[in-house]
Design a protein around this nucleic acid. Structure first.
Length: 224
DNA sequence: GTCCAGGGCCTAC
DNA sequence: GTAGGCCATGGA
């Protein structure tokens, strides 16, 4: 099948419906979540976000006024919390230095220029920055994460040692350049990798496996 | 008790 | 340019 990638997305969409991502109420919450979720499960992140929320700190200005040490303990559940507190602080400082705390001003930047500025912040790598660009700033970039690599390398559609940029370019070449698809495809992959496959021992139900019989389940290494 | 989850940086070769 | 260590919680 020529356009396997797009077909895989269609199947996921048909099976699970639009995922309505990211799990957050405001762009600021997306940004904090994107940093907190580095190498940790979302359950741990949710606890940390709830702690920030109950202290009224899920807010640009309030967090800008806070000391790192005061909110580091609130995000303890997110693992590496001292480092993550500093990363959040660095982002906020950048946000106020560069845009005077005006979110609209930030998202008016051209995508690649903004991407490069965000990558320049110590502690924000490609996945975190692209998540912010796509889910907080509504920019057309495809987010690559551990699920994307695991799922598609096990299906043999990318190599295991492929770099972030290679994978991202691969998907962006194969897919229409639409924010809606980038947004929902990534959400579908997280849903599949994180929830469906763990509770779904019957691989025959996986929408991706229905496409090509040479595929096997990406959850674990064994063929069904 | 062990394993591992929606990374990224720093250092050493 | 890259392998390996470091960061350091909570649920299964």
């Amino acid at each position: 099948m020529e356009d396997m990638i797009l077909e895989i997305y269609r199947r996921l969409l048909f099976e699970y419906g639009h995922r309505n991502w990211w799990p957050a109420k405001t762009p600021f919450e997306v940004i904090i979540g994107a940093i907190l979720t580095q190498n940790v499960s979302w359950k741990n992140v949710r606890t940390a976000i709830n702690n920030l929320k109950s202290e009224g700190l899920l807010d640009f200005e309030r967090l800008h006024q806070s000391e790192v040490d005061t909110f580091a303990l609130l995000i303890r559940s997110s693992r590496y919390y001292n480092q993550k507190a500093k990363k959040i602080k660095r982002f906020i400082d950048f946000f106020y230095d560069e845009y005077e705390g005006n979110f609209q001003e930030m998202i008016q930047e051209e995508t690649l220029a903004l991407r490069s500025k965000l990558l320049n912040i110590n502690g924000l790598g490609e996945e975190t920055v692209d998540s912010i660009l796509l889910y907080a700033c509504n920019k057309p970039v495809f987010v690559v994460d551990a699920y994307t690599k695991r799922i598609f390398s096990r299906y043999g559609l990318i190599t295991q040692d492929a770099k972030y940029k290679e994978i991202q370019n691969f998907f962006m070449r194969k897919l229409p350049h639409e924010i809606g698809i980038y947004n929902d495809f990534h959400a579908q992959l997280v849903h599949l990798g994180n929830e469906i496959c763990k509770t779904h021992p019957n691989c025959n139900a996986c929408p991706i496996l229905q496409i090509n019989s040479k595929f096997y389940c990406h959850y674990g290494n064994k063929k069904p």
